[in-house]
Design a protein around this nucleic acid. Structure first.
Lengths: 339, 339
DNA sequence: GTGAAAGCGCTAACAA
DNA sequence: TTGTTAGCGCTTTCAC
């Protein structure tokens, strides 16, 4: 099955290829006589002409596509984000190349390199670390990009994140209203903005409310994983710090905490309440029911895509960053056993 | 930051671009004098040369990429499949373009069209319907492709699916061993091979084992969704057919069945046992614990990628299809209340 | 074994 | 307003 080329359209319409090109691109359509333009467009339609994106890309160094860099698609957090991005980009003619880095810097670097060779016009990164040499370089070189979910420490890169501080406040407020006073925190990795922000907000909340806040009631987990959460919970239990509730840095850590509590035969939420963070898909099915802070994943992706389009549209404007609101989803938490 | 071109490498090495091209492509490297080849490669390395994939693609009509067409990435079934595909393709230099169709034929068609324009070398489809005009056409035109998870009725297209019949047998055998005799089936859509195969296997199993098999104990759901499963379960309960166990066509239908049972105040597995299919991620967290048939998602993807590479390697060979083995994951089911 | 020449399909100066 | 020309970076006949 032969695919019509611009040349063939031009020949059939009796014009030069350059004229046909102009007539078929909205930006240059105005340069050509309205009736010839119409004729060319009609012929193009009849012949089923569609421009060859590869030839176009070779010529223009553009590509109508962006690179999306995430840690791991099988983390249920990301599929809704990806859909949000694509649902915004597709209608305006953009595609996204997705790559999973599994948190490996070299994979990320070579992905960026490979995207560049393919003339991607911008990037969305969900892999930002607080200190991230590659991203800092790219920002310094004015590469169009948007961070999602996580940010850098030195951050004037446009980003879309959730309002984690407020989320933590909602969670703690909920626990306090239930009567908890001794609350612990399973913090996420401290080289990521999410881990740091939630931990800081946790500490601030304890202080402001006059709740016990010895250092021991925060345990830092070394990954956002169920296993790390299980280990963290063990450490917390063995530390001797008294607590009746735990705020986990995210749902996976919370699930790990569940595992440890079950293994130790500690009833939940009877003896210890656990609150998660993210409300990732299918969290509503777990048992015991888990209260968690809901992040609008799909919207996070959609807003990131809009922001990137804005950046691509006019790189001169000052980069905006967005903080999306969170809500608390109350499912299972109860007051402390002693109350 | 300037990126070296083949021309620049050739100039620096004192050869013609054509020679440099030959020296830098493993397939043509043999055509050039070994020492000049080595010199060219050294220069290329020093200059950090990497071939421009777009220029190459324009010239060769190839692209080192394939198109992957799935219904919806947010269905937890698919992320592991996608990772399996990518983990096999990446090491051999291939990339995958992913598109979500949301089961819309026109979206699928335009995705295929757009992939073709980008010179994808093959396709993986996870969207096959039993009768699927587009796929039949493409197969007739010898388009390199592999089906995953689902197949066509008229199937000599290479495919990688799970051995659903055996899976159903495992599930029913398990229920029978627990003492169940009255078993019902929430079947999936009957325009998909998975829905049909599991339903047929269910009926055959009942017959062979001499279990009650009136028509009423199979309810066909109109989608693989929780909502459809909930509706199906309602219909089953209201039909008056006696049953103590239900085999759901997949986990989402099973979760829907849970919802209906909970809404009706029917204890599970006390009064009615539910068995799922797929063991999708995080199924081990649901409550009540669900016994389900595990499909090796990641391997499904990996095998599909290998099969596609085989097809791309030598299109003349007879298309193979793979049936991957399933296992039963026993979590919660119990014998019937009456037993 | 190497070079010359052509061209994949398109767009963007420049000229008319 | 339209046509001419050139070239994005690469590969591949064909000639030597």
């Amino acid at each position: 099955m032969h695919r019509a080329t611009l040349r063939e359209v031009a020949d059939k319409a009796g014009v030069h290829p350059a004229t046909a090109s102009r007539a078929l691109n909205s930006a240059t359509e105005g340069m050509v006589n309205a009736t010839t333009a119409a004729r060319i467009q009609k012929v193009a339609k009849e012949m089923g002409y569609t421009p060859n994106p590869i030839a176009r890309s070779l010529k223009t160094s553009r590509s109508s596509s962006i690179g999306l860099i995430i840690p791991d698609l099988t983390n249920p957090l990301f599929p809704p984000i990806v859909r949000g991005i694509e649902d915004v980009l597709r209608p305006v003619g953009y595609n996204a190349w997705i790559v999973n880095t599994d948190n490996q810097q070299d994979v990320e670097a070579s992905a960026v390199e490979s995207f560049r060779q393919r003339n991607v016009e911008g990037f969305v990164f969900a892999t930002a670390h607080l200190h991230h040499a590659l991203l800092e370089e790219m920002a310094a070189a004015s590469t169009p990009m948007v961070l999602i979910n996580r940010r850098l420490a030195s951050a004037d890169i446009p980003s879309v994140t959730s309002d984690d501080s407020t989320g933590v406040t909602l969670a703690i407020q909920h626990l306090v209203e239930l009567g908890h006073r001794n609350i612990a925190h399973l913090a996420g990795p401290q080289d990521l903005s999410t881990g740091v922000t939630r931990r800081r907000a946790f500490r601030e909340n304890l202080e402001e409310r006059g709740l016990p806040d010895e250092a021991g009631r925060i345990v830092v987990c070394d990954a956002w994983s169920e296993e790390a959460g299980a280990r963290g919970m063990l450490q917390l239990l063995d530390s001797g710090v008294p607590f009746t509730a735990v705020l986990a840095g995210n749902d996976l850590l919370a699930l790990g905490a569940y595992d440890t509590l079950a293994a130790r035969g500690i009833s939940c939420p009877g003896e210890i309440s656990v609150i998660g963070f993210n409300d990732m898909p299918y969290m509503d099915k777990v048992y015991p029911p888990m209260t968690t802070v809901r992040i609008p994943h799909y919207e996070l992706g959609a807003e990131a895509a809009r922001l990137l389009l804005e950046v691509l549209d006019g790189p001169e404007r000052h980069p905006r960053s967005l903080l999306l609101p969170l809500t608390l989803v109350v499912r299972g938490s109860t007051g402390p056993a002693a109350a």
